[in-house]
Write a protein that binds this DNA or RNA. Sequence first.
RNA 1: GGGGAGAUACCAGAGCGGUCAAAUGGGGCAGACUGUAAAUCUGUUGGCUAAGCCUUCGGAGGUUCGAAUCCUCCUCUCCCCA
Length: 376
Amino acid sequence: MKFELIFSDPGSSARAGCFYTDHGGIETPVFMPVGTAGTVKAVHFKQLIEDIKARIILGNTYHLYLRPGLEVFEKAGGIHHFNGWKKPVLTDSGGYQVYSLTDRRKMTEEGVIFQSHIDGSRHAFTPENVMDIQRSIGADIIMAFDECTPFPCDYDYANLSMERTHRWLQRCLERIKTTEPRYGYDQTLFPIVQGSVYSDLRKKSAEFIAAADAEGNAIGGLSVGEPIEIMYEMTDLVCRILPSSKPRYLMGVGTPINLLECIAMGIDMFDCVMPTRNGRNGMLFTRDGVINIKNEKWKLDFSPVDEQGTSFVDHAYSKAFLRHLFVSGEMLGPMIASSHNLAFYLWLVDEARTKIISGDFVPWKNIMIKQLAQRL
RNA sequence: GGGGAGAUACCAGAGCGGUCAAAUGGGGCAGACUGUAAAUCUGUUGGCUAAGCCUUCGGAGGUUCGAAUCCUCCUCUCCCCA
C-alpha cells in the first residue's frame, strides 16, 4: 500500500492525497462511514457508492467476531465476498469496546476478556489474536489493539495505559509480520497514538508510533468527553510529530466542524457514528447548520430535505414528509437522514480536498465553520 | 319498559376524605448523541407577575376544618334483560 501526497495547503497543515489499497484508492481527506456489523446502518451499499460516494467503510473486530463469527468470513472468502462491499474496509480492533464496554471486560497485560453483550459468553482478546481476527475478517486496514482511555483519566493511569498500548503494538507488529494476508490482497496495520489529554504523553506516544514506520498512523482516545479545545490541542500536537508522508487517521471524530478544524491540522482520515446515529435520531447536518427534523417548525415546510444536498434523497423528499416519517416512527425516516448525512460528510471532505488543491482552503473553512455552527 | 356500570388533563386510564395540579401508558413539545450493546436515551406537557399564587377531575347544589373522592338533583354515555 502506498500514500501519495498530492498537495499541501500553504496556509495550513491541510493536505490532499491518495491512499492506494488492493481494493482501490482512497482520496484524502476522507470520511469513512462506520459499518460496525458489516453494514452501514440503514444504507444500501449501492447508495453508499453511487450516491454518497463513500470510498471505504469501517467494520468492528469485536462485533464481527461475535456475530456472524470467523467461520463465516473464512468460508465466504473475506468480508468483501460476504457483504458485497468491493471497496476497502478498515476494521477497528475492539480498542474502543475496551472503553465503551468497560463494565463488561477485564483487562490485564496479556489482553482483554470481554463478556459478550449478546449472550454473556467470555472471549479473550490479545494483540495477537486481534490481528488474526482482522486478517480473517479480511480488512484492508487493520487497527492495532489498544485501550481507548476514558475522560477524565488521571495522569498515572493514562501513562500506564499508554505504555501498555505501546507494548501491545509491538506484539501486534510482530504478529502481522509473521502472518500472511488471508485472501490474497494486502492487509496493513495502523498503530494508534494514546496519552489521553496530557501533552507530554501524547508527544511520547506519537514519537513511539511514528517510529513503528507503519503505512498509516491513527490518533485514538479523543472525543470521549473532553473539552473540544483539548481535543484540537492534542490532535495538533500529534500531527506535528507523525510523519507527513503517511496518512493520519483521527479515530471517532466527529462533527462537521471538527472535521474541518482537524483537516487544517493535517488529518487525512476520519470516521464517526455521528452522521448515521444522529441521523437515525432525526438530526440532519447541512452546510447551513443543523436541523432537528422532528421539530414542529418543519411540519409544513414542503421544501426539499436539502436544496444544496448532493444525495438524491435531498431532492426526492420534503422536510415536511421526512418529519412525518420520523414522527410516525417509519423506518424510511432514519434511512433518508442517514443517507443525507453521509452524503453531506463526504461532500464536505471532497470540497475540502478541492479547496486544498485550489489553494482556498483556509478562507473557505472559516466561512463554513460559521455556517455549520448554526441551528436551523 | 326493567336492571346495572360509568363520566378524571390532548387520548386511554389510576386515584375513592387531607401527603393531588392529580400515578402510568400513549400522543405532543424540546434536548442529548463523536474508533455504535443506540430505529436509543433524557426532560417537559393547566395558567401566572413562578421556592408562591390562581383555576381544574360532566353540570348545579350540599355535607365537612378540608371533596376528584361522601350526599342530592340534572345532563350524557355504555352494558345486560325484555
